[in-house]
Computed example of a mutant assay.
Amino acid sequence: MNVSLKRIQAIFIKDYKEFSRNYAVSIMIVFPIAFALLYRTEAGEQAAIYAFILNFSLAMLTSFVQACLIAEEKERNTLRSLMMTPASMLDVLIGKSALVFLISAAVLAFTTYLFGYETSNVMLLAAALGISILLYTAIGTICGLYSKTLLEASLSVFPVLIIFTAGPFALAFEEQYPFLEVLRYLPSSQLSELLVAMEVGAAAGELARPFIIISVWTVVLTIISFVLYKKRLMDQ
């Protein structure tokens, strides 16, 4: 499948203009920054609080913005036109994901700075955040493709926000409710485990396990987003 940088750039610029015009979507960049300022002086385990901010930000910013950008095109019937152009599936999905990825990366980096989180393994942290951004971008793509309107896309992200953000906290009750053990395998729970393990200086094997699980989630959901895009293309 051919990939055209010019087509990707054109889609990227188009999305940037739509993002900058839609204040209901672009306002989402404020929430991670606000949470970082709100919780940076809180007592307790820094890694656990930082993980909560990241999980909330990834769902509220990355997935929400991606879903809304795609659903807005569907609502205007411009996504159908885009699908009919010579642009390949990778051109469209990379072009529409690049903006969200860059915005998320910049906002999370600034959020990390404001919160004051420090780690000796910066490269692993950057890799984990990069993989997580791709994961939540895929989730946003799926939500956007399943939605017919911007409002539906906004609502479809809230289950993601609730489950992925609350999942790590629900594990505190797994002794009373053993079925909650399944929440340990959520990417948000694994990101929390990874940050806590980094904070206590865990061995490489303990750090690799959550990173691998997050990566598997990312690959599976990205494939699902590709399949769903192809299905929508055939439905047209």
Score class of each variant (00 low, 15 high):
Met1Pro: 08
Val3Pro: 01
Leu5His: 03
Lys6Asp: 11
Arg7Phe: 08
Ile8Tyr: 09
Ile8Asp: 13
Ile8Arg: 12
Ile11Asp: 11
Lys14Trp: 14
Asp15His: 11
Lys17Trp: 13
Glu18Pro: 02
Glu18Ile: 10
Glu18Arg: 09
Ser20Arg: 07
Tyr23Arg: 13
Tyr23Glu: 05
Ala24Gln: 07
Val25Ile: 13
Val25Tyr: 03
Ile27Asn: 02
Ile27Lys: 02
Met28Asn: 11
Val30Arg: 12
Phe31Asp: 04
Phe31Asn: 04
Phe31Lys: 04
Pro32Thr: 10
Pro32Asn: 08
Phe35Gly: 06
Phe35Tyr: 15
Ala36Phe: 07
Glu42His: 12
Glu42Pro: 06
Gln46Pro: 13
Gln46Phe: 08
Ala48Gly: 06
Tyr50His: 10
Leu54His: 14
Asn55Lys: 06
Asn55Ser: 05
Phe56Glu: 07
Ser57Phe: 14
Ala59His: 05
Met60Trp: 15
Leu61Cys: 02
Thr62His: 00
Ser63Phe: 10
Ser63His: 09
Ser63Leu: 14
Gln66Asn: 12
Ala67Ser: 09
Leu69Gln: 06
Ala71Pro: 04
Glu72Gly: 11
Glu75Ala: 00
Thr78Tyr: 11
Arg80Trp: 13
Leu82His: 07
Met83Asn: 03
Pro86Cys: 00
Met89Phe: 06
Ile94Trp: 09
Gly95Asn: 09
Gly95Glu: 15
Leu99Ile: 04
Val100Cys: 04
Ala105Cys: 06
Ala106Asp: 06
Thr111Cys: 03
Thr112Arg: 03
Leu114Met: 14
Val122Gly: 10
Leu124Asn: 02
Leu125Lys: 00
Ala127Glu: 09
Gly130Met: 00
Ser132Gln: 04
Leu134Arg: 12
Leu134Val: 15
Thr137Met: 04
Thr137Pro: 02
Ala138Tyr: 02
Ala138Ser: 11
Ile142Phe: 03
Gly144Asp: 07
Gly144Tyr: 05
Leu145Phe: 08
Tyr146Met: 15
Ser147Ile: 14
Ser147Leu: 13
Lys148Ser: 05
Thr149Gly: 06
Thr149Gln: 07
Glu152Ile: 05
Ser154Ala: 14
Ser156Gln: 02
Ser156Val: 04
Val157Ser: 10
Phe158Asn: 13
Phe158Ala: 12
Ile163His: 01
Phe164Tyr: 12
Ala166Cys: 14
Pro168Ile: 03
Tyr177Cys: 05
Phe179Pro: 12
Leu180Asn: 04
Glu181Gly: 10
Glu181Gln: 13
Val182Met: 10
Arg184Tyr: 15
Arg184Lys: 14
Ser189Cys: 08
Gln190Gly: 13
Gln190Phe: 10
Leu191Met: 15
Ser192Met: 11
Glu193Val: 07
Ala197Arg: 03
Glu199Phe: 05
Ala202Pro: 01
Ala203Asp: 15
Gly205Met: 03
Glu206Pro: 08
Glu206Thr: 10
Leu207Tyr: 00
Leu207Gly: 00
Ala208Tyr: 06
Ala208Glu: 03
Arg209Thr: 06
Pro210Gly: 11
Pro210Tyr: 08
Pro210Leu: 05
Ile212Arg: 05
Ile214His: 02
Trp217Val: 03
Thr218Val: 08
Val219Phe: 10
Val219Trp: 09
Leu221Thr: 08
Leu221Phe: 10
Thr222Arg: 07
Ile224Tyr: 13
Tyr229Val: 09
Tyr229Glu: 06
Lys231Arg: 14
Lys231Tyr: 14
Asp235Glu: 15
